[in-house]
Simulated scan of single mutants.
Amino acid sequence: MPEGHSVHRIARQFALHFVGKTVAVSSPQGRFAAGAERLDGLRMLSAKAVGKQMFLEFEHDRWLRVHLGLYGAWDFAGNFTADATTASAAGRMGQTNQHGTVAAGTVIADTVVGEHEDSLASIGAPRRTRLRMSEQEKATDEISEFPPEPIGAVRVRLLTDMTCADLRGPTACEVLTPDEVQVALNKLGPDPLVDDNGEAEERFVATVRKKQTAIGILLMDQSVVSGIGNVYRAEILFRARLDPHTPGKLIPEELLRELWRDWARLLDIGVTTGQMMTMDGLTADEYTAALASRDDRHWVYHREGLPCRVCGTNIAMELASARKLYWCPNCQAPLGTNPQGD
Rank of each mutant, 00 (worst) to 15 (best):
A320L: 14
R203K: 04
T106P: 00
R239P: 13
L131W: 14
R309M: 08
L218V: 00
D83C: 07
T272Q: 15
A77M: 10
A33Q: 12
R297S: 00
K249R: 14
I217T: 12
I151R: 10
W299H: 13
R127M: 10
E253N: 07
C308G: 01
A289G: 04
T213Y: 02
G227T: 06
A165G: 06
G51H: 07
D196C: 05
Q275P: 11
V113F: 00
V25I: 02
V102T: 12
V231E: 09
E180H: 08
H60K: 11
A153S: 12
V112K: 03
A121Q: 10
L56S: 00
M279I: 07
A200R: 01
N97S: 01
L42G: 07
P28T: 09
P2A: 01
M277I: 07
A47Y: 02
C308A: 02
A82E: 14
H298T: 10
C164I: 09
S223R: 05
R12P: 09
V25P: 03
W263I: 08
T85D: 07
S122R: 13
S119D: 12
F80A: 03
A139S: 08
D221P: 03
I228Y: 05
G105T: 07
L131Y: 15
I151V: 12
A153C: 11
Q332N: 06
I215T: 07
Q182L: 14
H99F: 15
V183I: 03
Q13L: 15
R132F: 10
M54C: 04
I217C: 13
A82M: 13
V231S: 09
M277T: 08
Y301S: 08
R297H: 00
L218P: 00
V194L: 11
L259E: 01
G152H: 01
G216K: 02
R261L: 12
E137H: 14
E286R: 04
F14S: 02
G227S: 09
V181I: 13
M54P: 06
T337W: 07
L282R: 03
K48H: 14
L68H: 06
E202S: 14
D166A: 00
V310H: 12
V181N: 09
T163A: 05
Y326S: 05
L16A: 10
P178Q: 03
H8K: 04
K210C: 15
W299R: 09
I10P: 05
G305P: 01
